[in-house]
Amino acid sequence: MSELNKQFHEPLLNVLRCVADDKLFLGHRNSDWTGIAPILEADIAFSSLAQDDIAHASAFYELMNTISGEDPDQIAFGRTADAYRCADIVTKSDDFNWANAIARQFYCNLYDYHRLLRLSNCTWAPLATLAKRICAEQTVHVDHVGSWIDHLGNGNDDSKQRLQTALDDYAPYASMLSEKPDGIDTLFEGGILIDEGCLFTQWKEHVDTVLGTAGMKAHIDIPSARGGRTGNHDDDFALSLTELQEVFSTDPLAAW
C-alpha cells in the first residue's frame, strides 16, 4: 500500500466502513426486487444497480484489507451488528412498494455521489483512485433514479402521491446519512481528507433541484441523533443482517 501513517488507519477504516456498509446493504436490499420489479426492463436495470453497489462495497472492503489485513468477506459478513456503520435508511424496509424503493434509492444515490466526489480528492492515492472510478459509475445511478423521480413525479396523480408519501416517510432516515463518522476530523486535520464544507448542504441542494423538476419536496434536517454511524441500529437492520449472515454463519471459516 501507499504510505499511510498508522495514526490514520483506524479513522480511515471507520470512514471506509461507513461507505462500504451503506453500499453493501443498499445493494442487498435492492436485490430483493430482482425477479419481481414492476416492469421487466426496470427489473433488469435495478439488478444492475444492486450489483454495482455490492461490487463497490466489495472494492472498499478490499481497500480496507490493504490497511488492516482482514479478509473482505469476513469484514462484509462476519461482524456483530454494532460493528456495522451503515445509515439505517439503506436497510429500511420498502415493503415491496416501488415508490419506497425509489425514494430510498434517490436519497442514497445522491448522497453517495457527493461523498465519492469528496473522497476522490483524498490525498491517500489508493482511495482517491478508487473513489474516482466508482464516482463515474455512481453518476449512472444518479441519472437512473432521477429518471424515476421524473416518471413518477410527472406521472399521474396516483404516482405523484405515492412518491411524495415515500419521500416524506424516508426523509428522517435520509438525514441520518450525513451523520458524521467518528475519526473524520482526524483525517481532515491530518490532511488525508479535504474539508470541502458542509456535505449535507451540497447533497440537500441536489435533492431539492431534482425533486423540484418533478414537483416533489423533501423535508430533511441536519441529524441531531447518533445512529448507524456509531453502530446503533434499528430492527430492520437486524433483519437484514440476519439474512445476510444466514448461510455464512453456518460455518464462517468454510469456503463457499
Binding site: 445493494g27 436485490s31 430483493d32 430482482t34 450489483q51 455490492i54 462495497a57 468477506d73 437484514s240 448461510v247
Partner: peptide, 16 residues
Amino acid sequence: WITKAPSLLRKLALTA
C-alpha cells in the same frame, strides 16, 4: 437466495 448468498462473489454472481 440472493440476500443469503454467503460471500461477496457469490452474491454478485447470483444477482447477475
